[in-house]
Write a protein that binds this DNA or RNA. Sequence first.
DNA 1: CGCCCCGTTTGACTCAGATCAATGCGCGCA
DNA 2: TGCGCGCATTGATCTGAGTCAAACGGGGCG
Lengths: 251, 251
Amino acid sequence: MTTVPPGTKAEPCARIERGQGCGVERCGLCEARAVSICNAIEEDQLSELARATTVVELAPGEVFRNEGASPEYLFNIISGSVKLFKLLADGRRAVIGFLTVGDFIGFGRPDAVPCSAEALTNVRLCRFERGKFRVLLETYPKLERRLLAVASDEVAAGQEHMTLLGRLTADERVARFLLARAEASQRLGGSSKDLELPMTRSDIADYLGLTIETVSRVFTRLRRKELIDYKTARSVTLQDRPGLLAISEGG
Amino acid sequence: MTTVPPGTKAEPCARIERGQGCGVERCGLCEARAVSICNAIEEDQLSELARATTVVELAPGEVFRNEGASPEYLFNIISGSVKLFKLLADGRRAVIGFLTVGDFIGFGRPDAVPCSAEALTNVRLCRFERGKFRVLLETYPKLERRLLAVASDEVAAGQEHMTLLGRLTADERVARFLLARAEASQRLGGSSKDLELPMTRSDIADYLGLTIETVSRVFTRLRRKELIDYKTARSVTLQDRPGLLAISEGG
DNA sequence: CGCCCCGTTTGACTCAGATCAATGCGCGCA
DNA sequence: TGCGCGCATTGATCTGAGTCAAACGGGGCG
């Protein structure tokens, strides 16, 4: 079991670029727009959207949202990868999810942030001040509709993950994780065979409800069975998709 | 581990009462209105709401929503208790949650129901045809806003449960379950000490990612330590709240 | 270039919770 | 009132994954 020493907290020294290239340009040229909630907003209203946002850059390891805090900001990921996690009092950690380009960060009860968020890679975020975001929602019903759809999806994804955590074996969990990663990669136009994993074995373990050692053992077992291959721990090739699928379903 | 024999499916022989007491009366007098999403709709527009709904009655054990099916209907629970669950191919089961008065059933991707739903007690449901519900959302922005808030809450609750499933011990899980039940009971105006559990030990096990036997053993252990007491398996008294809280946090 | 650090892998052993197997018991029904 | 059927409890044993410990390896830095 991985535990985190209490009081380890990255200082929020984010470089902030405010309003550069404002108006249609910034949001209009945004690399993430097509896959983010912002695609619910019409071309000719992008300048109003841009006025409500600030672009933030983060380095790997930076924590930019703290569990339990008041949710001052909401975010869209423009580029890079992020992990969401929760800490228990004794240092046990649960990784709730891994997010990338286009993903929205900001669901939860209105009074407290449900989980902390940390950059895994260099990350560019589009940041909304909470009050301004609420105004946007009221102004653009399409945006609200889009957000409801995203939240609804997220509920379903959460239920899927609960099933994994509650009822699957270690092999099944890792196989599903790899297949899910492949699918996500494909959705963003990447390869569905060659995966770049921006997270450590420890992050994967905390995501799958396992230990580092178990995750590592399952990876090597899958490699020996020639279902996957890798030279470095962070870039994996799926060699036998049907085989992985069979394992993921309890084969 | 509990497994379910394949092909066990309750026939959907729900008694349906259509449009009785229509208009303001039905929705206006609804016992669940104050705690459901319908409280986002003004008094004088309740008749339109009522026209979009049908009241359905179910007996314990009836499955009224099937994982994977197309989501034709959405529901609000008027009275009684419901469990949501997912089945794996080999019969393993994950219980996703227990719902009661005022709870909404209908989140998920638009193409497939994320999990099955079964009545635990006699249940009265308010049923919305999907198309009509969408029209309601478009007509009443407040309803949509309310639903987004509920979905957002649900995301956070799901994350909480993932943490439980991924990182807590059996004792911690059961203690949290009991405390959460107490809180839910209190929210609905019931006792926060005397709990009626509408679900079986098997349901609890599948909800907490444990086996029946482990759940049972933890219950008796908590009773021996005089943290809880019960005469029948389904009605539990919390005797030592702080003690339970300590256990739930890894005491 | 070589050293150090941190993430990863591998091995030996342990243990919390699962599995297997009775037994208990409350409730509905005859 | 007694019978039978599910659910629940309890006990004995097993095992998948955790823990502890050591070695490996690659990337960054002096």
